[in-house]
Amino acid sequence: MAIVSARGGRPWTFYVLAAIFVGYVAFLYGPMLCIYVLSFQGPQGGLTFPMRGAGLHWFNQLLSQGDTGDLIGAISRSLPLAVLVMAITVIVSFAAGMAFRARFPGSNWLFYLVVASLVAPGYVLGIGIGLMFQLLGWNTDWYTSALGAQLSWTLPFGLLIMFAVFGRYDRAYEEAARDLGAFPVQTLRLVVVPMLLPGVIAVALFGFTLSYDEFARTLQTVGSSNTVPIEIWSMTQNVTTPSIYALGTLTTALSFVVIGVSLGTIALIQRRRVGMKSL
C-alpha cells in the first residue's frame, strides 16, 4: 500500500506529510490536554497557566453545585437519552442499511432525505421541532422532542457506516444460510449480525457519543430540564472559574470510557477472528 521509492527508501514527501500529520495531532489533542491539566488546580486557580496549586477543588465545586445549575440532574438525563438514542440508531440504521442494498421505490428520496438531515443546520432543525411541538400543542421534553432531534443527527451517521459495512460484506453468506435451510430471522441472528458485529458496535459508539455531546439540535428541543452539553453551554456564558474545565474533564473522561470499551470490543472480535483463521 505504502508508497516506497524503488530503492525502498522514503520519498521526501513522506517527511513533509509526516510532519503535517504530527502537527495536526498535536493541534487536535494539545488544547484538550491543557484544560484537563488546568482543571486539577487548587482554589486559587485561574483560566490559564501557570497552574496555581493542585487538587480536586474544582471538581468538588462542580458537584456541590456551587457554580452550576443541576449537573447531576443533567447527567441523569443525558445518559439514559444517549443509551436510548444508541439503541434506536443501531436497530434502525442496520435495517435501513440492509434495505439500501437493493433499489426500492422511494430509495432515492430517502437517500436525499438522509443527506438533507445531515447537512441541515442543527439549530434550524431544533427550531423546527420546537415549533412543530408548539403548533401541535405538545410539550418539548428530552425523551420526546430532543430524542427525535438527536436521531435526525445520529441515524444518517449510522446509515453511512452501515453503507461502508455492507459494502465489504458478501451476500453469498446469507444465500448459503438460506440454502442450508435457515429462515430469514435465523439467517439474521446466526449469520448476518455476528459477521457484522464490529460495524454494529461502531454504529452504537456513534449513536451514544453523538447523542451524549449533541448541542445544536437539543438546545431548542430539550424543554425545561437540561442535558450535559447545554449545562456546559450555559457555563461558558457565565462561569469564569476552572470548574468549567473540571466539567470538560469529567464529561470527556466518560466519552473516553465509552470509546475505549467500544474500540476494545471491536479489536477483541477482530483478533479472535484472525486467530480462528490461523487455526
Binding site: A95, A99, I129, M132
Partner: peptide
C-alpha cells in the same frame, strides 16, 4: 426483495419524516 427493503427502510423514513420533514414544514 424490494418489498422487504421497503419494510426495512420504513423506520428510518418514519423518523426522518417526523423529525426532519415535518419540522421543516413547520418552519
Amino acid at each position: 426483495w424490494s418489498l422487504s427493503s421497503l419494510l426495512l427502510a420504513l423506520p428510518l423514513a418514519a423518523v426522518l419524516v417526523c423529525f426532519v420533514v415535518a419540522p421543516l414544514i413547520s418552519v
